[in-house]
Design a protein around this nucleic acid. Structure first.
Lengths: 331, 331
DNA sequence: GTAACATACGTATGCGCTTACAGTTTCGCA
DNA sequence: TGCGAAACTGTAAGCGCATACGTATGTTAC
């Protein structure tokens, strides 16, 4: 392994000078910097992240806490998040949050992480409080937990929901159903609340039998569709907690030979790339998913630099994208 | 931050004893171990990965080099790979390989990685040789590069290809086309070679105009389908380099209103979860993708422990899965 | 009762880096 | 010509941990 000492020897300077030269310290002469850089290149040296991390007291690694890597939604978050972190000179470490694993703050410490992006917090989770108590910088991605203030990036469902509900009313839907996300997530809770409010404004309601809840995954949608259908044929339009759930619904419908949208209209939330496929063409509530992920990366990194700055809560707008899964109700 | 020294003070022992006790060193008495563990728990201590890494000379972090995180194929690799690594006590760090970024070995050193999983090597890549020269343990995942021996996990296309070709012949296809992967990847090259051989055995060939090459991504399939179609209506059956390409083909067909399989049959390779969707039902050549990913994790970790052990090349079998995208040719 | 040894723990050291501080050189200016 | 300040660079120390080595205590055998 090539160390800064090797570079120092070749360049004819001391080891600390190498360190300073390579970090572009202002009090090192240009001539020396050039010499050092050249020696470093000749030896194929690059500074050892571990040594640096130990010395400065923290690494440049950010953890992304996800519940389920298989989930398409998270898969689509990872790419932009990773890119943005890399652009900012940081690394991405994946952390899955399973019941079996050690408490998060311990794992963060053990992994030597500088900060964390929380994408899976439930409202009743103790994780945020623990992280705060341990002084670990973190941001909420797409969710928040009450009680513990921290930087957050979320999405405001209202505009999008307003648009689709107006459209549904225009088309003549009166029996609207929903498969909402978990009640103990802010995302699930907020979307449900907004949907109920907006429907109410139009004099519509959600019948008990036409409402389900479940995790934001494929199976929730698949099983949900079947369950709804058993109840008096099901609603004529189903609002889903997110696109992954909606994709589950769409596939269950295809399996049972139920035509979408002729028999049942389906609406998602997130506008994943898959939803735009010609085979799918899911009508959904869209927002800039990439940008949301990138923004969360920027927030953690900013937080690292200024631990005591005012917390930011950035909210992205949504809009309804009409594709091929919504039409007038069956008669 | 709680350090081993703090734990030592509380437990009334020296710092090294804490280190030994927590790593379950045999030459520490049970009584002391218990005392130390208790103190550690009381303080919420967990050993600092950075300190350990610097001390032992390497981290427990494995890099996964991917070309394109957006690609569904890689997304499906990440989950099992991550799980297996975690089970083995290691972390996953994502590394994207872009032309712009620094040479891989430098980045590996800079990130302090213990080993690397290469999933993107082209046959003409210099990366493997460089990694070998630097002494960085690595494994090939799903590909290999000639000239540089290393542990590898790959897939043998032959059985699967034999099955689908036999099926195609049985159904009466005579004009078969293909959208192969890049020529400079072992995966692309091997699959193409096997397809050509097996077709040859059946007295069939691939007409020049019905063969395309391109990266293993969605656009290759989408654009490829359009291109093939312009050439005298295109083949009656298209073999795709992988499922992602096939999904591109399927969507292009849907866009152009071309019925699959009535007008054109489509075959993929990989059997991604998406291919099993009722909306898709892609006929494809399948293998145990999860297990392949997991095996590569096991191989790197094993390599870490025994750097000089004989290299292993594990090959997984394939088989054809008939779903809804293959039928008799149009007349 | 002592030699020989095993057991359990402490001391010292170093991994590669950053950074506070001290030292040396150079330069400007009186 | 000399002196203070500025501009560089070197020296020393320490980040948290693991580990080679040394030491004290207990154990066994005779």
């Amino acid at each position: 392994m090539v160390t800064s000492r090797d570079v120092a020897r070749l360049a004819g300077v001391s080891q600390p000078t190498v360190s300073r030269a390579l970090t572009d310290h202002p009090r090192v002469s240009e001539a020396t910097k050039r010499k050092v850089r050249e020696a470093a290149r000749a030896l194929g040296y690059s500074t050892n992240a571990i040594g640096r991390a130990l010395s400065v007291g923290r690494s440049n690694r950010i953890g992304l806490v996800v519940a389920d890597l298989e989930n398409q939604f998270y898969a689509n978050m990872i790419a932009p998040l990773h890119d943005e972190l890399e652009r900012l000179g940081h690394e991405l470490v994946l952390i899955t949050e399973s019941a079996a694993s050690a408490p998060l703050p311990e794992r963060v410490a053990a992994h030597g992480l500088a900060g964390v992006v929380l994408s899976t917090t439930t409202v009743d989770s103790v994780q945020p409080a623990r992280l705060r108590d341990r002084g670990v910088p973190f941001v909420y991605l797409n969710r928040v937990a009450p009680g513990v203030r921290a930087d957050a990036v979320t999405v405001d469902p209202e505009t999008g929901v307003r648009e689709i509900v107006a459209e549904a009313v225009r088309l003549g839907h009166t029996r609207i159903g929903a498969i909402f996300g978990p009640r103990n997530t802010s995302t699930g809770e907020l979307r449900e609340q907004v949907v109920r409010e907006v429907l109410d404004e139009h004099g519509l309601g959600l019948a008990q039998r036409d409402v389900l809840h479940g995790p934001f995954d494929f199976d929730t949608g698949r099983d949900g569709f079947r369950t709804l259908r058993e109840r008096a044929g099901g609603p004529t339009l189903v609002l889903c907690g997110n696109d992954v759930v909606a994709l589950g619904v769409l596939n269950a419908a295809a399996e049972s030979g139920v035509p979408v949208p002729e028999h049942t209209s389906v609406v998602g939330f997130d506008d994943l790339p898959t939803s735009r496929w010609a085979l799918v063409r899911l009508s959904t509530i869209a927002y800039d998913l990439d940008e949301v992920a990138r923004e969360s990366a920027r927030l953690v990194v900013a937080r690292l630099r200024e631990p005591d700055a005012e917390t930011a809560h950035i909210v992205y707008p949504t809009h309804y994208v009409a594709r091929s899964t919504v039409s007038a109700p069956r008669t």
